[in-house]
Amino acid sequence: MAKVTREMVERSGVNVDQLVELLVKNAAAELTTYYYYTILRCNLIGLDGETIKEIAETARIEDRNHFEALVPRIYELDGRLPRDMKEFHDISACPPAYLPEETQDVNALLKVLVKAERCAVRGYTHICNLTAGKDHRTYDLSLSILHEEIEHESWFSEFLGEGPSGHFLRRGATSPFVSKFLR
């Protein structure tokens, strides 16, 4: 725990217990998504599936990075992760990104992926709104994650034919926004 850190956030008017709960729930969402995306990526096969596999892999690795980046902030604010991973799974801020019944249906897989990313975009927008101008470190972290989640959403959305994303896949290293929290 970083005592003065927590005190400063409390004095700014943020409900720190609520914030920590949100961070834990979103950390759970990131780690569970990393797991479910592993399965989705493995099933992205064939001409259509292989086209999407690389961005699914990038999103998968970046979601794991988000989990890694969130954990220190949770402990700084005197939070903790549940001892039981089953409990951790079940408190996720987003529903499980299950592999669809029709595993060959790339469109169905894409819908799972974009739904998961949209949940994440909503979650980090919420945390940014709660912490803006108050808890600078959590805001910076949440905003960095939000940048990456928005890109993930736009990649998958583009493949669903919802319109151009305006983005291209990563050139080089993953997590261009969150990497500063992983050093």
């Binding site: 609520q18 914030l19 709960e21 949100l22 729930k25 079940d90 408190i91 996720s92 801020a93 987003c94 529903p95 499980p96 975009v121 909503r122 979650g123 927008t125 919420h126 709104n129």
Partner: peptide, 28 residues
């Protein structure tokens, strides 16, 4: 909904309430 487990939603809202005003502030 898993997002309303135990009547709690995103550590911000509880079930059993009129959320009409709250939804104005929600990220959805």
């Amino acid at each position: 909904s898993l997002l309303w487990k135990g009547g709690d939603h995103q550590a911000s809202h509880t079930a059993g309430q009129d959320l009409t005003d709250a939804l104005e502030e929600a990220p959805h």
